[in-house]
């Protein structure tokens, strides 16, 4: 496989990988890094990769694993670096008004406060619009497990909205 072919395979879903990585690591620098790492991984295993039927799901799984590893490693670092990322990253959220930004960030916090699996399933379903089957492949879950996790996640999310109102 030529480099160009690899790029053509990856580019159609690079944003999906990026957003999934962003969901987990929470900043654009590391999310961008992860996308690059995925590209290199694919290139290193290009023969294997060309045989994979569901390339997108494979990449999503890799993205999740890498992102979780990164997040774990980051926990070891000082909080000052985290703060730096946090501040720095505000400037790079999509162009929306300050007010909207705040409400959107509050929702992000709600979702991020869910267990990782639930938050990832919500992300894949409600942001990316993946089918249960696709989510299952990407997350390594059975169809039933996906439904259960999504159900719990939405329940928990609704509860958070109700609590917020009161």
């Amino acid at each position: 496989m030529q480099d160009k072919e690899i790029m053509n395979l990856i580019l159609p879903f690079k944003d999906k990988l990026y957003r999934f990585a962003y969901r987990i690591v929470g900043n654009s620098f590391e999310a961008e890094d992860i996308v690059q790492e995925i590209l290199i991984k694919v290139w290193k295993k290009k023969e294997q990769f060309s045989q994979i039927e569901n390339k997108e799901a494979w990449c999503m799984t890799m993205t999740r694993n890498l992102a979780i590893d990164k997040k774990r490693a980051k926990k070891m670092k000082t909080s000052s670096i985290e703060n730096f990322h946090h501040i720095k990253d505000q400037s790079d959220t999509p162009a929306i008004s300050m007010e909207r930004k705040e409400t959107v960030n509050r929702v992000r916090e709600m979702i991020n406060s869910l267990p990782e699996k639930q938050a990832s399933v919500i992300h894949l379903r409600d942001i990316e619009g993946l089918s249960y089957k696709e989510i299952g492949v990407a997350m390594g879950l059975s169809l039933d497990q996906v439904k259960v996790v999504l159900h719990r996640a939405r329940k928990a999310l609704k509860l958070k909205f109700i609590n917020k109102k009161q």
């Binding site: 480099d3 160009k4 690899i6 790029m7 053509n8 990856i10 580019l11 690079k14 944003d15 990988l17 990026y18 957003r19 962003y22 969901r23 654009s28 999310a31 961008e32 996308v35 690059q36 590209l39 290199i40 290139w43 959220t93 999509p94 929306i96 909207r100 409400t103 959107v104 929702v107 992000r108 979702i111 992300h123 409600d126 942001i127 990316e128």
Partner: peptide, 23 residues
Amino acid sequence: DFYATELSRTSELNESSGISLLE
């Protein structure tokens, strides 16, 4: 609103940056 905003996030990776990374 959050779902829609998140969906508008994009990676900076493009064909030429990717190929030069591989090089």
